[in-house]
Design a protein around this nucleic acid. Structure first.
Lengths: 365, 365
DNA sequence: GTGAAAGCGCTAACAA
DNA sequence: TTGTTAGCGCTTTCAC
């Protein structure tokens, strides 16, 4: 009963009617395909007059692509992830993709749901940053219906595209720096040891000490939550136990901030009495007093790399959609979903030490 | 040539074939409509075996809704916007909507493009947080093809849904607090005066002083950029000019952080010698040493309110799609796009002073 | 170069 | 209750 004109937003049908051509011609002109001069003019004129804007949903349905990417991260309040979002958004935008954001609150079930929801074809690809990577994650990602890039460190045998941080050598670098600047009793406030980051940073700390011939002393270490108050409390503990410590290395900036606050509260000078270093190089590091030396584990870089890798996978998929070639023509037993996957790529972002005044006194402010 | 089975992801057609029913029955069962017991079972079984997941794009095309919301903000690196994103994401998720993120870098052209892109029907509604609201913004938003909620303060005559901050009374509250705690020479480091926030904060500062019988002294004020280093520099200037000042109120936390750093660098104690207060109550405020008193202008709250308002508009639009009723049946002159708009709603988030140790010495730490 | 027509996967009106 | 059918708006053969 709809006449096609006057109801709802303009479509190619409205344009076709107004221009007196077929919808096919409209489509062609609008997509820059060849058309006779006057056809093109009529169509463009009608489209302009009607204020036509193509319906992206219809386009997606036809084309099988949404031009949307999804990024799923644990917590948008965390500056580390914000840095990733920022880069991903920029890369996506530049490539003509929109960015869909998911906050999983680090709940495994949520993360898995996001991966599975790729089957809804709401987005063309996913970048996911899980807090821990379980076998279920690996399984779900391996069977995902669209390209997935993981920001994190899956088990070595997992065949996934991923972008890792190297927190081992990151921690190591921080310890080197502290040792290089004359510190000898370097304490370490770590996060939970039952997490991958926790274990890695511990390893880096030990390596760093060993590299400089410094012994590992359990009394100089603490493991707690990744939070400012936890850092403050841990620092108190350490100082009570070992008042002679001359540096505190922390597994992230928030812990470092807490440690620095404790030092202030106890009337100790940073860095003269005790040097403090953190990790992640968030805006907190720059904001602290004194500004914190910190190890940039490359959040921004990982975000960028992940996005670029994902885009590459999408390009590949677009160029080689001939997955089912060479199979028996129309036998009903085609249930297998085995597709030769492109060799998974593992990239690692190189950590970068950013030296500020919490470890090296400023010459001039 | 496609048989419907075995190629590509399962669709209702594959299910129908496998279950030996029509696609309509499949659709019904899958949407929870009534069906005979065994039909339902057959369908569910087939769907499960095939690992069927509905294609959201096709659904959107049919239903005219994408179940996506867009949030456009100037800079995802800014904690104020991060707080908004967080809340918006939560509200959207709870209501079954996905969140599309746009970073406009505060470029007006980009902002307008986002509003106009609503015509592509990629998302059902938009929350936009423009840095300045121009007449073009008002115009574009008024003619948008989907509901838009503005976070910010459009001109009073603009008929837009919006959620405002009250930075005037926020600044005022901060000054009150400083005066109440005995400060008399309260300096003010503001952002650029040619922005709405800048002007409002200045107004609040003056009002606050007046309320307490304190005179306005231009020598005690500075206007600069919203950045840590700018705050530090401005504080130096103020202290050179007026070494007797006993408080510095700053138009945001970054400026306050910079001011605090300058005070430390000059060997002055916070808050004993000079109290410092900021605005926005970002995580920087809590991270600073001492922790900064700050005025929470309700970023999180504004985000939440905006999202809820937008959802309400969407509900209204869904319930009353009878815009074209009572018009002449099929006259061709139905070009007008005048639709009686629901009365625009203006909400204001109440500022909240958060007192910390940068203005009031801690009793015990 | 252009138009008619066939879908993309789904929902909903209408018949049976 | 169930099946047939007509679209949602678009792109893309395939004839003409």
């Amino acid at each position: 009963m709809t006449s096609g004109t006057g109801s709802g937003p303009p479509t190619i049908v409205s344009i076709a009617e107004r221009a007196g051509v077929s919808i096919a011609s409209v489509s062609r002109v609008l997509n820059g395909l060849s058309a006779r001069r006057d056809t093109e003019e009529k169509v463009r004129k009608a489209a302009a007059e009607l204020g036509y804007v193509p319906n992206s949903v219809a386009r997606s349905l036809k084309g099988g692509r949404t031009r949307q990417l999804t990024f799923a991260m644990p917590d948008i309040g965390n500056p580390v992830y914000v840095a990733m979002v920022r880069e991903i958004q920029a890369v996506a935008k530049a490539a003509g993709y929109r960015l869909l954001l998911h906050s999983t609150d680090a709940v495994t079930e949520d993360e898995l749901a996001v991966v599975r929801s790729l089957a809804e074809r709401t987005s063309d690809g996913l970048i996911i940053c899980p807090i821990r990577i379980t076998p279920q994650h690996v399984e779900a990602i391996a069977h995902a219906t669209a390209p997935v890039v993981v920001i994190g460190s899956p088990p070595p045998d997992a065949a996934l595209d991923c972008v890792q941080a190297d927190s081992v050598s990151g921690a190591q670098k921080a310890v080197w720096h502290l040792a290089d600047t004359g510190r000898r009793r370097i304490a370490f406030i770590n996060g939970p040891l039952d997490t991958v980051p926790g274990r890695n940073r511990d390893e880096g700390y030990r390596k760093g000490l060993a590299d400089h011939g410094l012994g590992y002393d359990p009394e100089l270490t603490a493991a707690t939550d990744f939070a400012v108050t936890a850092g403050a409390a841990a620092a108190h503990e350490l100082l009570d136990r070992r008042p002679d410590l001359d540096a505190i290395f922390c597994a992230n900036d928030q812990l470092a901030l807490g440690a620095a606050q404790t030092l202030h509260a106890r009337g100790m000078r940073v860095p003269e009495d005790v040097a403090v270093a953190g990790m992640d190089d968030t805006l907190l590091a720059r904001a602290a007093w004194p500004p914190l030396t910190s190890v940039d584990l490359g959040s921004a870089e990982r975000g960028r790399i992940a996005a670029e890798l994902l885009l590459e996978r999408l390009r590949e998929a677009a160029e080689a959609p001939a997955e089912r070639t060479n199979s028996t023509s129309s036998t009903s037993s085609t249930d297998d979903t085995d597709v030769p996957p492109p060799a998974p790529r593992r990239t690692t972002a190189e950590p970068r030490l950013v030296v500020r005044e919490s470890t090296v006194p400023a010459r001039s402010v």
